[in-house]
Structures are given as C-alpha cells and as structure tokens.
Design a protein around this nucleic acid. Structure first.
Lengths: 247, 247
DNA sequence: GGTTAATCGTACCGTACGTTACGGTACAGC
DNA sequence: GCTGTACCGTAACGTACGGTACGATTAACC
C-alpha cells in the first residue's frame, strides 16, 4: 500500500543545515550511541562534545530533537546509490541488485545502524513515535523508493515479471535481510565479513531472479535454484555512471 | 540442542514453577507491556497485579528477573507445533510450511510479540542484559529448530533440494517475514488481517518451493512466480482441512 | 578599553524509577 | 490465644536523567 511516500514533505525536517559545531556534536552523539558502555544522555553528549547542555537545548530543542537530528545526520551520510539506468540487460540488472543488496547489508550490519535502530525501536513503544518514523523513513522506505525504479526498468526491459512492484521489493528485502537484522538488534553476536556480505548479496539476487526473472528459460530453468552462482562475465557493478539523481 | 528444553530448565533462573499468583502477576505485566499508554515499572506492575513491590522483589529478584520471567511466561504460552512426520508428500510438506508461516506471522504481528521484542531490543544495548538472548532463543532460534526437521524430512523424501538446512530455513524466514517485523517494531501502523496472513504464508511457501523444490518443474512453471496476492476474497484454495489437495 | 553575543562549565530543580524498609492484615499450626 | 509466615500497601531513599539558570570565558566588533 502506501509504503513509499517519496513526496517532499520537509515540513518537519527542521534540521536546517547543522553548523560544523553542531555536526561535531552529532558525531559525538553517534559515537556515544555506538559505544555499548556509554548511555546516550544529554549530559554525556555535552561532555563528549565539549559543549554545554544549554547549547544542546538551544540547538536541538530537546532530547527528541537531538536524537532526530542525529538520525538524520547519519542518514545523510549514507546517500550514494549508483543506479544504472540505460543499456539495461540481465548482467547490469543483476549487478544493480547485487549492489543494492551489498549496500543494504553493509549498512544494516554496521554498529551505527544497529544502535540507531535499537534506539528507535526502544523509543517506539511510548507516545513520541517520531523517532521510529524517521528511521523507518530512512530505512526500509528509502530502500524501497530507490529499488523500485530499478525493478520497473527491469520489467520494461522484459527482464522481470511482476505485477506489484512493492511486493517484489519486499520479497527482495526478505531475501537479502532474512533474520540478520532482528538477530543483530536482539544482541546476536552475528558478524558479517565483507566477503560474506557479497556472497549473501549474490545469493539473494540469484534467488530473486529465480522468482521474478522473465521466463526466458535460461535464467530460471538452466540454473537450478540450489545451484551456486556460476558467474557470467565481469560483474563490475561499480558503474557510477548515474548516481541516482533523485532526492 | 542444549538450548531448548521445553521444561525443567531451572538452571539459571530461579523463576521456575511460577505459582498461580505469580502467573497472575506475569499476566498483569504482559498486559502493561502491551498497553502503549502504560509504562512497565515495578510500581505499575505491583499496582496492576494488586501485589506489593516487596513481593515482586522476593519472587523475581529484581526488574531484570521480572522481565525475564515475563518473557519466558509468554514463550511458554506459544508452544504448539503440529508437525507432520510421516506420509510425507508435496501437499503435506506445503501444508506444514504454510502452517509454520501462518503461525509465525500471527505471533510476530501480535501486540504482545511486538511489545516484547521492543523491550528486548531496547534493553539489548547495554551490558548484562540477557533479555535479548532469551527473546532470540524463543524467537528466530526456536523457529529454526522447529522448522529444520521438516525441511530435512522434505529432503529425505526427495521433495526439497538443499545442502545447508540452516540457510534454507533462513531463506524461508526472509520470505515469510520480509520487512514486516522491523516495520512493526519501528511503529509502522501496518496491520495484517488473518486473510492477509494466510495469503502471505501461501506466497512465501510457494516462493520457497520454487527456490528449493526438487526439480519437478511443473510446480513452479504453471503457477508462475509473479502471482500476486492482490485478492483477499474467497479463494478456491482456502481449504483449511486439507490445503491444496495435491495437484 | 568597552560592549555584546555566543558558548562553556556547572550547579540546581523536579521527576521517574528501582530498591528497600516498615507497618498492618490474614491465616496456619500449636 | 500466640507465633510465625506470607503477603499487601505505602512511605522513604538513592540515583539517573531531562531540563533550566547563572556566572565565567572567549571572541568579535566598536
């Protein structure tokens, strides 16, 4: 349904251009957030950033504002999605999907993301849901908005077959993330190396193409589902030709 | 293996054999947990359960003990797993998988599960909080332990093809859960009706069998992977008695 | 030098909560 | 009846934290 709301609703994004000093504060907050020893309190942020609490309240309003600004500051850092838009063929599509999966798993399993999601989830219980909404917006929703155009292009090119783009995206999400995120959030000492992430991304992409690849036989039939990826050419997914002009 | 002992696991927690009075207290705690208005504090639990705080500390040691007992009490309630072990064929296997998926989605999207996972995730940040471990144990891990035998049976019967049972389970997990859990935890107002859950379970099962079903192709080809779940009206396959009486 | 604005450091306040302590009540066993 | 036990209700204590106030410091600008 209304999963993706890409419309520019900047009414609440009041965090207009944090000054360098404020950015340093937000980085300090992120540092505290990641540290499992430290608690993210106003006093601790002030001390870590060598600023006064009064300044924190002046700049961010209240604790919620500080957390919101921190989440958005982190989200702003993870904004780079190369997206191949033309000359589409199966190899390019596969590379794009693998790239998405790799990026997503990398972000997901990072300490910062885990800590941030923990904070937002924990905060989502009470009334001030604001934080969870923001993480949701910059997390799953953002991924959907970025991936669905790729899927649409794949469909236009006759490479994919699906009716519901959102459902397709969510299936891809499931194949990529599986139980990794919830396990990390619950404290599972799971650790993903870069190689494992790449491998997972390839597996998820292969499975997704098995499910959604157009029935040109070769993809789904010849290549058995349980079969490992026999590569097809150099999948240099680093094709930053068009870094996703949108948003 | 040594992790899951359905009963008589009083190894580490003194919270064994909760008396009826204590069970009532734990139910009260669960009630508070679900209520987004109330905070789960020792005082509120005592008041809701009409017991004294002194009794709480006597019975559960401290707050952590109370929460742990609450989680385990809830987990003990969700202990019912029909498991078809013989006379296996594709229809039975499919029914088992759909049953698993349905149960899992039902539990996952329940208020209690969401609240419990929120609590555990929020608590998992610091140290010494083994609450996340317990939820993990009774959540994803438990599902894996219960599902993997089914997958193994399916493989022995020549219905499934896979090398790594755990990987297969995790793929199934991803196809079933997708982004539902993280969205719920983050406060997404997503709501799943029973029909939607059944539909999702069928979709996930169909996709899983597409990926892992032994190469009797007809299954995957005829039905097609892109079959949407758009309709929730009366569907011919809605036969809970013997779902999908074999093709 | 003097004035002003921004910021720092810190003391302070109110509240929420975990935890403990204490008085009071019901009841079983003698 | 007396005593011990278990429990309830509540007051009290210590701490942590969000939020505020205020003097001190710096730096820009006249």
């Amino acid at each position: 349904m209304s999963l993706a709301k890409p419309h520019a609703d900047d009414s609440k994004q009041g965090t207009v251009a944090p000054t360098p000093r404020q950015r340093a504060v937000l980085d300090a907050a992120l540092g505290l957030l990641v540290d499992p020893k430290a608690a993210l309190t106003m006093t601790s942020v002030a001390k870590a950033a060598s600023c006064s609490k009064e300044s924190l309240y002046k700049w961010f309003g209240d604790r919620e504002g500080l957390l919101t600004a921190t989440v958005q500051w982190q989200a702003a850092k993870v904004r780079a999605v190369p997206l191949a838009r033309e000359g589409i063929d199966l190899a390019v599509l596969r590379a794009s999907l693998e790239h998405f999966a790799t990026d997503w798993l990398t972000v997901l399993s990072g300490d910062t993301s885990v800590a941030l999601n923990r904070l937002a989830v924990g905060e989502a219980g009470g009334a001030g849901h604001h934080l969870g909404t923001i993480v949701l917006e910059n997390g799953p929703y953002a991924m959907g908005r970025r991936l669905e155009p790729v899927l649409a292009i794949g469909r236009e090119a006759g490479l994919l077959e699906f009716d519901d783009g959102e459902a397709a995206f969510r299936d891809f999400f499931g194949l990529v993330v599986r139980d990794v995120q919830i396990r990390l959030l619950l404290g599972d000492p799971l650790k993903l190396s870069d190689d494992e992430i790449r491998s997972e991304a390839r597996r998820a992409t292969r499975q997704f193409l098995t499910l959604y690849g157009a029935s040109q036989g070769s993809e789904t039939a010849k290549r058995g589902p349980a079969r490992p990826h026999g590569e097809d050419g150099p999948h240099d997914r680093d094709n930053p030709h068009k870094p996703n002009g949108k948003e």
